[in-house]
């Protein structure tokens, strides 16, 4: 069986989750590889959630928030915007390809954009191959 990446998506409630819902109501198709977790704001997404997802077996993580300036909470997305580059640096040190973790802005009317992002990301992660952090963490113990 070919490799089907697992992607965890953290979507802000106001823009991106609504945008993803719009993709649904508009029946815009995208790969089923993403599983969405709703947060109220992209500012709630802790870097630890991303690490946890990767360690738990995800091959990629997508964080979506409102476009800069559009945040329902004024500036929450800027907090996400500030954490993201540092998180990328960290992931690079950990040896996780930067393409596996993405921060994207998706508005409530961008159902198509959301689907495009998911499709694109799924393809990229598929090309990168499985991350296998979960397996590695387990085999580390036995292999020594």
């Amino acid at each position: 069986m070919s490799f089907e990446p697992k992607i965890v998506g953290f979507l802000c409630n106001w823009c991106s989750y609504t945008g993803a819902d719009l993709a649904g109501t508009s029946r815009i198709q995208y790969p089923p590889n993403i599983n969405i977790i709703r947060v109220m704001c992209s500012a709630r997404v802790e870097p630890d959630f991303v690490l946890r997802a990767l360690a738990g077996g995800a091959d990629g993580v997508l964080i979506c928030g409102c476009h800069p300036g559009d945040c329902h909470y004024s500036e929450g997305n800027y907090k996400a915007m500030r954490r993201y580059p540092l998180l990328k640096t960290l992931l690079k040190e950990y040896g996780v390809d930067n393409d596996r973790v993405r921060l994207e802005w998706v508005s409530a009317s961008e159902g198509q954009r959301f689907a495009d992002i998911v499709t694109d990301m799924t393809e990229r992660v598929r090309a990168l191959g499985p991350l296998r952090l979960k397996t590695d963490l387990q085999t580390d113990r036995v292999e020594r």
């Binding site: 106001w14 823009c15 609504t18 719009l22 409102c66 476009h67 300036g69 559009d70 329902h72 508005s107 409530a108 009317s109 961008e110």
Partner: peptide, 17 residues
């Protein structure tokens, strides 16, 4: 509307709620 001036925020994002 798509975007609203001058902040260019998305009309749906602010209206649909």
């Amino acid at each position: 509307f798509d975007k609203t001036f001058p902040t260019l925020d998305c009309a749906a994002c602010i209206l649909t709620p």
